[in-house]
């Protein structure tokens, strides 16, 4: 592995706590690793297994999913339902041989800009340690046509 390799990490952050936390980090000029690409979702329970696996399939080296702390979900209990699903999904993908550090979950409140930066740093360091994702990546994907192309 070359020294310059940097992992790509997709972060699914909920609109109401985790995304604002990342925003707060930005406003506060806290630096977080540029490896993390953020996708804003309405709630952590929006993050289906489909989304997580699609990220891996499309070449993400790591995935981060974050929502409000239990009790703080904007939709009352979305994150509590999601917590059960995440626990099972994480176990299942590790069962079939996906490295434990690839898919990560955490909670962050809107005020926790510092925490989200810390988590991003730890996760990107540990994914870097794991090296490029090899499992679940689709190698010969035909590039999808964008909607614009359709009308071209």
């Amino acid at each position: 592995m070359s020294q310059s390799w940097e992992p790509k990490i997709i972060a699914f952050l909920c609109n109401w706590c985790s995304y604002p936390a990342a925003d707060l980090a930005g406003v506060g000029r806290m630096q977080y690793p540029p490896n993390v690409r953020i996708v804003r979702v309405p709630c952590s329970s929006r993050v289906s297994a489909n989304l997580i696996l699609s990220a891996l399939k499309s070449g993400a080296d790591g995935v981060l999913v974050s929502g409000c702390h239990p009790g703080d979900c904007h939709y009352i209990s979305g994150n509590l339902y999601a917590r059960r699903r995440f626990a099972l999904l994480k176990n299942l993908i590790e069962f079939i041989g996906i490295e434990p550090g690839r898919v990560n979950f955490f909670w962050a409140a809107a005020s926790e800009g510092g925490k989200i930066v810390e988590v991003m740093k730890t996760v990107s360091a540990s994914v870097k340690e794991l090296g490029p994702a090899g499992r679940m990546v689709k190698r010969f994907d035909v590039p999808a046509r964008s909607p614009q192309q359709k009308f071209a």
């Binding site: 239990p70 339902y81 059960r84 626990a87 909670w107 730890t122």
Partner: peptide, 16 residues
């Protein structure tokens, strides 16, 4: 059904 419900004390030690 287990995934249509939750408990406040569900384990979350799998989280970072």
């Amino acid at each position: 059904l287990p995934l249509t419900t939750y408990s406040e004390t569900d384990r979350q030690d799998f989280m970072v």
